[in-house]
């Protein structure tokens, strides 16, 4: 859907999308990094299961929600991507029960 302009320079950042490695440019928001990586949709809705992708890129539509480092429903268009980030696309409503037990296991 999006491609990057050639010769932008800048530092690169490594992260994962659903476990697959990807790279972004330092300064990208997570949403931009996902668009640049060829992702088509970042979640399905809790109401009907329809796929959605970032729509406004400015924090007002809440379509860009993804799981970042184990925390669901983060607004990816407002969050800068960081080295080592684990980003997951979401299916339907966020499961706080599994987020919570994963956090417990990690601790």
């Amino acid at each position: 859907m999006f491609r990057r302009l050639p010769d932008l320079g800048g530092e690169t950042v490594n992260f994962t999308i659903d476990g697959r490695p990807a790279t972004a440019r330092l300064g990208d928001t997570v949403a931009a990094a996902l668009l640049a990586s060829g992702m088509e949709s970042c979640r399905t809705t809790p109401v009907s299961g329809a796929p959605r992708a970032p729509y406004c890129m400015m924090g007002v539509c809440f379509e860009c929600l993804v799981t970042i480092n184990g925390i669901g429903n983060r607004q990816s268009c407002l969050i800068p991507v960081a080295e080592g980030m684990a980003i997951e696309t979401q299916k339907g409503a966020r499961s706080i029960a599994s987020e919570y037990s994963a956090k417990g296991d990690a601790a």
Partner: peptide
């Protein structure tokens, strides 16, 4: 609501902040 449909301003933000073009 389909992926691939977004605001033109959103695309502009992707361009300004990340150098992305549709």
């Amino acid at each position: 609501t389909l992926p691939g449909v977004m605001t033109a301003g959103g695309a502009q933000i992707a361009l300004k902040t990340s150098g992305l073009v549709p």
